[in-house]
Nucleic acid binder design. Structure first.
Lengths: 209, 209
DNA sequence: GTGCAAACCTGCACCCGATGCAACTTTGCA
DNA sequence: TGCAAAGTTGCATCGGGTGCAGGTTTGCAC
């Protein structure tokens, strides 16, 4: 059992300190990466900016790349929980759409995400990691879709659905830093994806029987 | 202009030596990775096994991960050429299917590919790189699909089509080393993907007007 | 509040991947 | 045969990452 899972009644001092340290490191890292570039910034510099020992940075973030995705674990858990707890009638994609809408509504979170995407855009070295993270979420989504369609978790269709949906979300990356995709556009993207995969699934079901 | 692009009339001695050295390094690397693991094997060991200097390994393969995808550049070029030179009536996906069929027909290439996939399966550290490589091919495919559909290269639909198709190819990864996906199964996968994306595209076009 | 154990932070030594540079060797060609 | 270009190598160096052994802080029972 991990620390901090004590029903979140009230976090202990130790817990609060850890969160603060972690946040400080991530913030310092993002700032330095943004200012001087990912490659150019060393972990030692991040440590100095966050006022901790280099060794401590590594204890919070196993790799340098992880510093760019500080909230990935949280997002992952959120998605898993949402999908697991969705109502009887709601499909996985419906649930995803709802979740996206909520994420987009969070001003600070949205800004941070855009900033993160722009950083990744600028640093090809980060693309691999991003794709890996994406693949994790995709697998979770695919598993839920498989339940919806009543097929095996490793069947073809759920993974095509998940991949197409992820590809749609990938399109919200703004090419021009000034020209941010609006929230409505982002949701329209998801809607198009839903139409696409819905038709795809029906097309395949129809051919099959 | 890169060396070796002299109409391939007859490769010079230098060229042949380079190819041999490159192949020897890749072969030695795959062997060692397979036998002792990717993380556990050092570049120095690969160099020794291939009877070259460590520095030479890095001159052929910029990163350790690249040793696992020795023929990626070639595949990439093949796909680009095929798509560029396809007949008037043939769609991008048709062309892809044809190409896959030919790749599957090559016994040695197929075995090597399966081995590579199993290695990646075993080493999570390689997943990021694989996804990155996949993304490159996906972008090429998406660009061609965009031409087919007469939409912008960065439009949503082509990328969903490409992503779904790639996801299908991803399914040919055999979970059990002994139970290899047969060539027919692999092609059936592509066919299902074609049905899926075809229906998806039509569904979206229909809704749009 | 005292004291103890667990959790956390830190410095140190070390390994390995990766790069720039300056020789040295081999190949291509006049 | 000889010269220039390409290819190979060793060397020095940097930065990411890990294991380990203290030292410090926090939680908690008494």
């Amino acid at each position: 059992m991990e620390a901090g899972a004590k029903s979140a009644g009230e976090p202990t001092l130790r817990e609060r300190k850890k969160r603060r340290t972690r946040a400080a490191i991530a913030e310092a890292a993002l700032e330095l990466f943004w200012e001087h570039g990912f490659q150019e910034t060393t972990i030692r510099e991040v440590a100095e900016a966050a006022d901790v020992a280099p060794r401590t940075v590594w204890s919070y973030f196993p790799t340098k790349e992880d510093l760019v995705f500080p909230d990935h674990a949280e997002l992952r858990e959120q998605l898993e929980r949402r999908l697991a707890e969705r109502a009887e009638g709601a499909t996985a994609i419906d649930t995803l759409r709802e979740w996206i809408a909520e994420l987009l509504a969070d001003e600070r979170g949205y800004d941070a995400k855009i900033r993160q995407l722009q950083l990744i855009e600028r640093e090809p070295a980060l693309r691999g990691h991003e794709r890996l993270r994406q693949a994790e979420l995709e697998d979770i989504l695919a598993a839920a879709v498989a339940v919806d369609l009543d097929v095996a978790p490793d069947a073809l269709v759920p993974h095509m659905v998940a991949a197409a949906t992820t590809a749609a979300l990938d399109r919200l990356r703004p090419p021009d830093p000034a020209d941010r995709a609006s929230r409505d556009e982002a949701l329209a993207l998801v809607d198009d994806a839903m139409t696409f995969v819905g038709a795809g699934v029906r097309g395949l079901q129809h051919r099959r029987r």
